[in-house]
Design a protein around this nucleic acid. Structure first.
Lengths: 255, 255
DNA sequence: CCAATTATGACAGTAATACTATCGTATAAC
DNA sequence: GTTATACGATAGTATTACTGTCATAATTGG
């Protein structure tokens, strides 16, 4: 009897170890959120290979460190112990890598907003959640093992506009390269219309919330005279309050 | 008597010709508005020489044609029949040329707003004029013989953000490179405070008016799903109406 | 009006950038 | 066990973003 019991305990232990390992494995999988981005963005999807993930992970760090202008595929290759050519097999050029990164970021923000408003009835509450998420897309839970959302957000604040402020903007738009941003802006524009169905400028207010949020953080941190928000611990909350104040006034919603 | 009269007529004619010529000369001088920009922006002030003016005039056209990324001093030199080296004697690099051009533009907008609100008493009217001027800085009167303000405005809409979205933003800010933009934002922020002295976010609303105006034009023309404004003949008026509507709501001013 | 200074053009040169091409090997797929 | 493919290694090219030198033209000062 004691022998059988001890056998059972051994198997139970083994089972528990197995379940724990599977949980970690599952967690590992969940921790690697993958987004279906526009096919034109890359030759090969970097989310599907180890090398590709290394490129994503380290390009974010490197661009954040030295800025997009100084960033080159050669430097990235050196950092991940690969070659320029291998990176070119994934991305046609560094500009498309930037569009990939910003698209991934906007997908991530949309994903966050969507899960957070899922069970919310009140439209103003939805808008409040959307604003909070677009300002602090990183704080709550890290969504990905190899993508540092905090850094990525900083990157989008610093370099995001360069993704579409280019000569070929019309061609790139035609093949759907800015779809992630458009879908996000539409999501929030629809919430805005829920709050005030008669409002004429839902798309402009929506896109301006995103642009203004990032811009005001940039100003607060680098050209403070251009912003009423001060950088520091309270910055994000102050920014959320301001965006919410503006939206409330514009949409005739008393808060 | 007739002889004396005819003599008088000859002198009168000469006088008229002289006055006309002087008027043209004066007009010529007025047509070349010069702004005192930050000394760090250029080695030699291009506004003071023929070659420098050629650089300004043609860099605007060239950047508008091929985009800032593809723009090089070599191409500009070829276009004006000069050499790379000569351009480097005026500007350290193409980035500083861009900062120079955008600064000139912001000085020009501030100049326009200031002369147009000079004799206005009502603060809301001042704000309305400011908004109209920041959207249509070009329409009324061309301010400069060698600078095409229309093109320059398009350039600022397309490439303006790149002037400060750089790694060295803090250093450049320290030496006063963005002073023109700061002064303009301050001018409008003060008008906003005149409209509503209790308003907490005057700087942010002011900078956002400028950023939003340019951004929404860019979206309207290139990624229309991101804007409620449609490109075309009515675009500018629609944009003015929207900015005025937003400002009015935010500042509790019924329009 | 001449001397001195300064601005420009002509030409050369360099390190880095933004790619493209070829080839051998390792690895995964069928 | 062959075949496809992914990757690394190496080489090469046109262009970019500058810097340096020198002769000449234009402007300024006395």
């Amino acid at each position: 009897m004691t022998v059988i019991l001890s056998y059972n305990i051994v198997w139970l232990t083994k089972f528990i170890v197995f379940v724990t390992l599977m949980t970690f494995l599952l967690y590992y999988c969940i921790m690697e959120i993958r987004f279906d981005l526009c096919k034109s963005l890359c030759h090969r999807d970097p989310q599907e290979t180890e090398l590709g993930k290394k490129m994503i992970e380290n390009s974010i760090v490197l661009i954040d460190e030295i800025g997009f202008e100084a960033f080159t595929f050669k430097k990235l290759a050196q950092r991940i112990g690969s070659t320029e050519k291998s990176i070119y097999r994934y991305f046609e050029n560094k500009h498309l890598l930037l569009v990939f990164l910003t698209s991934w970021y906007w997908e991530w923000v949309r994903y966050l907003i969507e899960i957070n408003i899922k069970n919310i009835e009140s439209a103003p509450k939805k808008l409040k959640i959307a604003i909070a998420n677009l300002v602090e897309a990183t704080a709550e839970n890290p969504g990905n093992k190899y993508i540092n959302e905090n850094l990525l957000h900083r990157l989008v604040i610093q370099e995001g506009g360069k993704a579409y402020h280019i000569t070929a903007v019309d061609d790139e738009n035609k093949v759907g390269m800015y779809l992630s941003y458009k879908k996000l802006v539409k999501l929030v524009a629809d919430i805005i219309l829920e709050v005030n169905p008669k409002f004429k400028y839902s798309s402009s207010l929506s896109s301006n919330l995103f642009e203004m949020a990032n811009n005001q953080v940039f100003f607060a941190e680098h050209i403070p005279q251009l912003s009423s928000i001060a950088s520091g611990k309270k910055m994000n909350q102050d920014l959320i309050d301001m965006l919410w104040h503006f939206s409330g006034k514009i949409l005739n919603q008393e808060v």
